[in-house]
Amino acid sequence: MSEELSVGCARPTGGPVGEEAGPKEQTEKIVEEKRMVMVGQKAPDFEAPGYHNGKFISMKLSENLGKWTLLCFYPGDFTFV
């Protein structure tokens, strides 16, 4: 039976349940180096598709060099805050 979800500000997600599929003998997990970017350092460049003024676009962060840029991440479209 499915149950009704109450919606909050976090975007609901699912995931696998029960025993993990796949080979179990995997012992060594590759540890990815995870670091937050630092103030005073270069903002990592990226290229991303998007929507702007009624058009689909592709933009690189570095296109904005020469101007101040405010890069805002958010949890998802159609969320509440």
Binding site: V37, M38, K67, T69, F73, Y74
Partner: peptide, 27 residues
């Protein structure tokens, strides 16, 4: 992920806001 604001468990980005100067430096 590169900016350190991706929430792996929820599969979404958190509310990260970066001020970047004209030289591309995060202030």
């Amino acid at each position: 992920k590169v900016y350190g604001i991706y929430d792996e468990n929820a599969g979404v980005e958190t509310r990260g806001r970066f001020i970047i100067d004209p030289d591309g430096v995060i202030q």
